[in-house]
Amino acid sequence: MASQGTKRSYEQMETDGERQNATEIRASVGKMIDGIGRFYIQMCTELKLSDYEGRLIQNSLTIERMVLSAFDERRNKYLEEHPSAGKDPKKTGGPIYKRVDRKWMRELVLYDKEEIRRIWRQANNGDDATAGLTHMMIWHSNLNDTTYQRTRALVRTGMDPRMCSLMQGSTLPRRSGAAGAAVKGVGTMVMELIRMIKRGINDRNFWRGENGRKTRSAYERMCNILKGKFQTAAQRAMMDQVRESRNPGNAEIEDLIFLARSALILRGSVAHKSCLPACVYGPAVASGYDFEKEGYSLVGIDPFKLLQNSQVYSLIRPNENPAHKSQLVWMACNSAAFEDLRVLSFIRGTKVSPRGKLSTRGVQIASNENMDAMESSTLELRSRYWAIRTRSGGNTNQQRASAGQISVQPAFSVQRNLPFDKPTIMAAFTGNTEGRTSDMRAEIIRMMEGAKPEEMSFQGRGVFELSDERAANPIVPSFDMSNEGSYFFGDNAEEYDN
């Protein structure tokens, strides 16, 4: 993207840094990872977990959730003011799984939030270390993106479920800051804005008074975040219109849905970061690795190297396929839920299948599930090659597409044709070009129609051997075009429920 120079890199967003050079960025990201790792080690000690239990991804998720809940100030305040039966607002906890007599047992633990905050700050040299908290939120978000298709949420806001490739980060909490905003897809931002506008339509006082002023500035800020994701002048001009509207209503909703559809071809720039579970960072720190000293990046080879040398386990339900569970977590670790499966298959070195073909449910185990038949197995999170994460949407291309997802959002900077089903997408653009945004709409449609099938995206960008740390010898991959490109292809993934 041309304006790259004016933006802070995501590592800076990730670490609240002012302008830093590459070495400083690597050190501050490393410091953040160190903090998460030290916190995780301490929690495993508190909970008396064995090494194996500490490497269980379900335990990692519970521990991450506990610290996120302990620092969720708004919710904590709300819980104190609106006490609900049987919930102690000062405590947080969740299921911890232990191996007892050759069987997995679930144990519900409860801790004072104050105590968890103390352990977290102690692991982070006394700081609140917001960057580390956001990092864990993005890992949870990436896992949700890989596990669930947001059909219901899309339909509720009037969008087409086939636009799911635009929904990265749709389950990120509001408090995820600049680093969170960077990884949100165009569809996620559109959905947040539509929800806001709908509230304004239904509630006369939404934009009024002292609160209304705050609401208005939040609305304009979200519009600017979305505008910054678009790469064409016409899309940005249309966002200006939406932002400046005196009284946002149905016309703005129409414009936003139009823009979301246009992003299936004229893709937005959305950041991709490899955020790993805390149970990967903990053992690495415990083994003596100093992330701050060595430096770390979320968008280069580092996460690949770390996963190459990590042992992570997962509980497996009786009829689940461990290899499929591994694929789910591998995609989440690489922030690749909406990437082209052919690119992923090449990088991973084994075939990556669409969601609907995987015999696996989510990673988390519900409290009512029976533990008797639970097994555990090693997650295979290694890769054959590594590639640089991208934040450009890439230019655009036609490809055989599917009944489910009709476009992709690249996660890796790797040369390819970008699949999208042009006739299906263009069919949504018939007729409606009147109104105050008509010239911009016409211009956007013209650009979409001009998108050429034979153009290559990320020209000359390749993948790298894991021994090639400096990215000196790019390998331009070859793809098996007979395979499906979309992950949520004609899909039956479970729906995400809060």
Rank of each mutant, 00 (worst) to 15 (best):
L108H: 08
E494V: 09
R204T: 08
V476L: 04
S170W: 13
G362H: 11
P354K: 08
R121H: 14
Q409H: 12
V100K: 12
E107R: 14
A234P: 15
M137T: 08
Y281H: 02
V476S: 14
E114I: 01
F420R: 12
G362S: 08
D128V: 06
E73T: 04
I201P: 09
E320L: 04
I197D: 08
K90Y: 14
N368S: 14
V408Q: 07
V343Y: 12
R461M: 12
E18F: 02
N202K: 13
V408N: 09
I57M: 06
C223M: 12
T146I: 13
S165P: 01
A472E: 08
R208W: 10
P318N: 13
G86W: 06
Q149N: 04
A179P: 06
S377M: 09
L379N: 12
R243K: 15
T45V: 00
P474C: 15
A260C: 12
D51S: 00
G288I: 10
Q405R: 06
T433Q: 01
N334P: 07
A387P: 13
S176M: 11
K87L: 03
D34A: 00
S467R: 00
D51G: 00
Q308G: 05
I444E: 12
T390V: 15
L306H: 08
G288C: 13
R65D: 06
V270P: 10
Q405E: 13
V312I: 08
F489S: 13
F71T: 06
A472Y: 12
K77T: 14
A70Y: 09
G394S: 04
S50V: 00
K90G: 15
A366K: 10
L306F: 06
N142R: 04
R267H: 13
T424A: 03
T215F: 14
R400F: 12
S345K: 07
E53K: 08
Q459A: 00
N397W: 14
Q149T: 06
K452H: 00
S335N: 01
M32R: 01
H135K: 05
G94R: 05
Q12W: 02
Q398A: 15
S345D: 02
E107L: 10
T378V: 05
L79N: 13
Q364P: 00
P283T: 00
G393V: 12
C279D: 12
K351M: 10
S170R: 05
D421F: 01
G300Y: 11
V343A: 01
L193A: 05
A451Q: 01
I253K: 10
N473D: 08
I388Y: 07
E64C: 03
V312W: 06
H272W: 11
Q364Y: 02
K87S: 03
W330E: 10
L328T: 02
T396R: 14
N124V: 04
R8C: 11
I138R: 06
F338P: 12
M191P: 02
N370P: 13
E192K: 02
M456G: 05
I265Q: 08
Y111K: 05
G200F: 10
V155C: 14
E495P: 09
E81Y: 00
V463T: 09
P283F: 00
R461D: 12
D160E: 07
Y97P: 08
S245I: 01
Q327K: 08
F489N: 10
Q415P: 02
K103R: 06
N202G: 05
I445A: 01
E484N: 13
G37E: 15
G37C: 08
N247D: 13
K229W: 11
L61D: 12
E292C: 01
F458C: 04
E53G: 14
M222R: 13
Q235A: 04
P477Y: 11
E81G: 14
L61Y: 00
N205V: 03
E494N: 08
G94Q: 10
F39H: 06
D290M: 10
K452T: 00
A332D: 14
E73Y: 03
F258I: 04
Q241H: 07
K325N: 05
F429L: 06
S402P: 14
N417I: 03
D255F: 11
G435S: 04
L61S: 07
M66P: 04
A218C: 07
R355A: 10
Q415F: 01
G93D: 11
Q415W: 14
P322I: 01
A323Q: 12
F258T: 10
K198R: 02
Q235Y: 09
R55H: 00
S438F: 14
N492A: 03
F338W: 00
E220L: 02
N368G: 00
A442T: 13
V190F: 05
T188Y: 09
S413P: 03
T424H: 00
L379H: 14
C223L: 04
Y487C: 15
G94M: 10
K357A: 09
K91F: 09
D439E: 01
S367W: 06
E369L: 02
Q42W: 08
R199Y: 14
F71W: 08
R38Q: 08
C279G: 12
T350K: 06
R389L: 08
A427Y: 06
N473P: 05
I225D: 06
D497C: 08
R470Y: 11
Y296L: 13
K7H: 11
I41C: 00
I257M: 04
Q415Y: 15
L166G: 14
G295C: 10
E484R: 04
I425Q: 11
P303R: 03
A218T: 01
I225S: 01
A263H: 09
D421M: 14
V343D: 13
V414I: 05
F230T: 06
V183N: 09
S60F: 02
A284M: 02
V242G: 03
L328M: 02
R117C: 02
R74W: 10
V280P: 12
V299F: 14
Y385A: 06
S297T: 08
I225Y: 01
I316M: 02
I197Y: 13
G126E: 06
N483F: 05
D101M: 07
S60L: 06
N202P: 04
A373S: 07
L306M: 04
I365N: 12
L49G: 01
V329G: 06
E494L: 03
A323N: 01
P354H: 05
Y111L: 15
Q20Y: 09
A85E: 06
T147S: 06
T130N: 05
G288A: 15
A233Y: 12
Y385E: 12
R416V: 05
F420P: 03
H82S: 02
T45D: 04
M447Y: 00
G180Y: 10
G158D: 13
K91V: 07
V285A: 03
G54Q: 00
P83F: 04
G349R: 12
I138P: 09
F304D: 12
F489Y: 06
T378A: 06
E14C: 08
M481W: 02
P277S: 13
I138L: 01
D372P: 14
T188S: 07
F458E: 10
L379W: 12
R162K: 04
D101F: 09
G282Q: 12
F412H: 12
V352C: 07
N370Y: 14
I257W: 08
P161I: 00
G37K: 03
V312A: 06
E484Q: 03
K325T: 15
M371K: 03
Y487K: 01
S9A: 15
R236E: 05
A129F: 05
N432D: 06
I316G: 15
E192P: 08
K325A: 06
N76P: 03
Q4W: 01
E14D: 02
Y10S: 15
C275I: 05
Y10R: 13
N395E: 07
R382V: 06
N483H: 15
R195T: 01
D421K: 15
D72Y: 04
R117K: 15
N21R: 00
Y40I: 09
D160A: 08
R117E: 06
G356V: 03
S402Y: 04
T188P: 15
R384H: 05
P277G: 05
Y40P: 08
K7L: 11
A336W: 10
S335T: 09
E320T: 05
L56G: 07
W104K: 07
R174P: 09
S402M: 15
S407Q: 15
C333M: 02
N247P: 09
E210V: 08
G362P: 08
A411N: 09
I425R: 12
G200C: 06
P95H: 12
D290C: 06
R174Q: 13
R175F: 07
T232D: 10
E455S: 13
I475N: 05
T23E: 13
